[in-house]
Design a protein around this nucleic acid. Structure first.
Lengths: 355, 355
DNA sequence: ATCCCGCCGGACACCGGTGTCAACGACCCA
DNA sequence: TGGGTCGTTGACACCGGTGTCCGGCGGGAT
């Protein structure tokens, strides 16, 4: 047991009659010489308060450092000041970036973030979410893939009457409920880039069909290729699971094809890292013999060797937008460019080998 | 806008007079023919209720699916049913594993987890934490490194009267407040293993001095070496920053030494991954020319090539313990073995090269 | 039979806010 | 001058629980 610095009153409060207790709305009312209801009006920015009264109350609030109790307020409002993050994406980097983004968007609002990972395949999946939302009387919920793509969850929240925002790669709902990521654009960028390097025989490993982003990323890639008169040949586009292991496996399959692809675009960095392993097992050099491109630009992309060329998905930005949206303080001057994926060229990509 | 399945009442409630509204304690009292206070006694397991009365109330509760409102309960208790996770560790994998562990430990308790990343160097660091804890009237707080090692935070929570648990690699507080990770043991394991492979000239990259775990992991490694009559020569032990980049940099420095170490033990996987890059830049093969061992066994360890031999830190287990501890439901039969680090041998380690 | 005590249950205030509605003064119009 | 409207404020009930305290009841001691 270590010595502790003694507790110091860093804010020696004026003697206001409530001692060290946190001030309540009653204290403020008494000190300002008004009823608690009027204080409540000031807190809630009701227009029906005289400027003079308002100023007096606000000064007392500032002097005492009063902050209304979210629990009591929530009880009266029949709604808490908590935002739920409901997710089932197993990628830690995604989860953390999303959380950080949400907190960015919620900063200074007085709301707090409650995390709620879930299992979409669980029999109690919907009941769990319902219990979570109803019990906590959540102010709002942010859904990320793949739960965000489940219509049952949206209906449930609609029914309960809980605000919600769905982060997904396509619009599935009224625009007010959607934050749409531009995965398709990222796919196009990958295609354009690979073609510009001279690649013609390319392959793709998509994420699982249960994620919309899998289709969007692949679709964008195909669109991009089509723009150059190219396409993915039969057998050169396969479904993975967004996991490292599936990247190894499917990567190995693709590299066993004849003729081999000169470039593989993976639906995320995890699978791209798997492809690097598969290439090594197949005795291929990256990028001399094989170009590998990932998607997301999570930390792993720069940790593997060679460092991955990848499409950066602005997850944290998206999270910030979701946070602002759910609190209704979305910045009108927000630049949609910020939400666009961006190609990051590193060392796993190079000119198509001469054959 | 997509079609939605219509809302279905999956739990057609008996006509109890409160309609679709969630039942409150008053409904239960009325239905059971008792006062709300008696219902409250049952909820809180007060002994002063006759078995017969208790049974009747519990049956009504079960029939109606009543769950007390945490906000109202919290208001009366002057304490919420929220657990805060306060952290400043930037490693996403650590954060997510810790969260999952905490949720494991909290499952079924009715408590929720509120995440609160923070910046220890911020001037408002302590004020932020105070505001967070006091405003939300948190039931408890879990602190993880390096905030957990800050005595000021512990004092603050003590002063506020908020339950807290500190996760750290050494005991810094009364045992009730500590979950001690066994980082030192892991360091010893690394040393024993490397010595068993025949390594004699080894180097270490520690984490930053601001993390206790840095000292523990290095200390354990030195202890282990000492057990075999070995030690880290001057200049063969250097301080990194627990980051990939610092691993590259310090790894490069160590590999420029003469004579070169035959094995490098890094304080975490991130830095070990950096060492792999440095080795490649120096034209060294791993593990033939150089053995690299990491610590943590996060995902990156198996993604890099060659896959890292590392010491697995049971972060999720630790989180579960912290969750149980703070709710006072710690499992007495918990096996302390579960908390021990464990060496995971992969491909980045091999016999010391013959020189 | 009376008193006392322990067990059990209820009435009431309270936690810290908000909703409803009525009162009040100033002002305007007739 | 009387009556209506508007802007401003407060009294009071209420949100859904818990703490305090007190009363009724049955049983054993006196």
């Amino acid at each position: 047991m270590t010595e502790r610095t003694p507790p110091q009153d860093d804010e020696p409060q004026a003697e206001t009659g409530f001692g060290r207790r946190r001030p309540t709305i009653n204290d403020i009312a008494r000190l300002a010489g008004v009823s608690k209801k009027t204080v409540s009006r000031v807190i809630n920015a009701s227009p029906f308060v005289q400027q003079e009264t308002r100023d007096r109350i606000q000064q007392v609030i500032a002097e005492t450092g009063y902050v209304p109790d979210p629990q009591a307020r929530g009880l009266a409002f029949r709604r808490s000041f908590l935002i739920g993050l409901v997710y089932d994406n197993p990628n830690p980097q995604y989860v953390v970036n999303m959380q950080l983004g949400l907190l960015d968007g919620m900063r200074g609002s007085g709301f707090e973030l409650v995390v709620h990972p879930c299992e979409r395949s669980s029999p109690s999946f919907l009941a769990d979410i319902r219990a979570f939302v109803e019990r906590q009387k959540l102010f709002g919920v942010v859904l990320t893939p793949s739960v965000s793509e489940d219509e049952r969850v949206a209906s449930l929240l609609e029914e309960i009457g809980c605000e919600y925002v769905r982060v997904a790669s396509v619009s599935l709902d009224s625009p007010a409920h959607m934050i749409v990521t531009q995965d398709r654009v990222g796919g196009v960028q990958a295609a354009d880039y690979l073609v510009s390097l001279g690649h013609r025989r390319m392959a793709h490993i998509s994420g699982p069909a249960t994620f919309r982003s899998s289709h969007e990323r692949r679709g964008g890639f195909e669109d991009g290729l089509a723009g150059h008169g190219l396409k993915l040949e039969d057998g050169y586009s396969r479904e993975g699971a967004y996991t490292f292991e599936s990247g190894i496996e499917i990567g190995g399959q693709l590299l066993a094809l004849s003729p081999k692809p000169t470039a593989i675009f993976a639906g995320n960095d995890e699978m791209a890292a798997g492809v690097l392993h598969a290439a090594r097992q197949a005795g291929l050099r990256v990028p001399e013999d094989l170009t590998v491109v990932g998607f997301d630009d999570f930390q792993i992309a720069s940790r593997v060797w060679p460092a991955l060329t990848t499409v950066r998905a602005p997850t944290r930005e998206i999270g910030r937008l979701a946070g602002e949206r759910i609190l209704g303080k979305e910045d009108a001057k927000a630049n949609p460019e910020d939400r666009a994926p961006k190609l990051v060229v590193r060392d796993s990509s190079g000119p198509a080998p001469q054959t």
